[in-house]
């Protein structure tokens, strides 16, 4: 019962901070709210007994990626004067497009219903031993392909970052 209350509380926090990311005027505040959103999501992982995912989520997203975001935004020195002004037609078309998306979402989700989980929830599934065995057993190929993808992205970033290629 108490986990259900915690779930609702965390969901409320995640949605509220997610909204604050979009609504806050200052980009630095947006980044900090996004970090709080990640913490709320990490709380959900802990509720699912997936501590490894929670810790890695914090390390990778909040500890590394958002720090880099903050870094760039601080150096860009964004403020009211440098903010590009969008014209009225652009805003209007954005509103129409978003409204259409809402209609499509409502239409497609109208007949959706809750399906019961086919497998019973196994509380040990998120523990690091089981996760490691699954990743290096059943999903070995996708795991290795993902590592290649990351390596490619890294080499690409280094190449782009270089001023001149000899």
């Amino acid at each position: 019962m108490i986990t259900q209350y915690i779930f609702y509380f965390l969901s409320f926090l995640a949605i509220m901070f997610g909204l604050m990311v979009v609504l806050s005027k200052n980009p630095i505040h947006s980044v900090l709210y996004l970090v709080l959103t990640f913490f709320a999501i990490a709380g959900h992982y802990v509720l699912l007994n997936a501590q490894f995912l929670a810790a890695v989520h914090i390390i990778v997203y909040a500890g590394a990626i958002m720090v880099l975001f903050l870094f760039v935004i601080m150096l860009l020195n964004l403020n009211k004067e440098t903010e590009p002004h969008k014209n009225v037609w652009l805003k209007l078309s954005a509103a129409v497009a978003a409204g259409l998306l809402l209609v499509v979402m409502v239409g497609s989700l109208k007949n959706a219903e809750m399906i019961a989980a086919t497998n019973a929830f196994d509380p040990s599934v998120g523990l690091i031993e089981n996760l490691g065995k699954t990743l290096f057993g059943e999903f070995l190929l996708p795991f290795e392909v993902a590592s290649l993808l990351l390596l490619g992205a890294m080499v690409g970033a280094v190449l782009l970052g270089k001023k001149s290629i000899k």
């Binding site: 810790a55 590394a64 903050l70 690091i128």
Partner: peptide, 22 residues
């Protein structure tokens, strides 16, 4: 005694940078 104690430690260390940056 967290079963991911080392990772917990590491995630707290990675959060340490925010205080100084902010």
């Amino acid at each position: 005694d967290l079963n991911i104690g080392v990772l917990y430690l590491f995630s707290v260390v990675s959060m340490g940078v925010y205080g100084i940056m902010i």
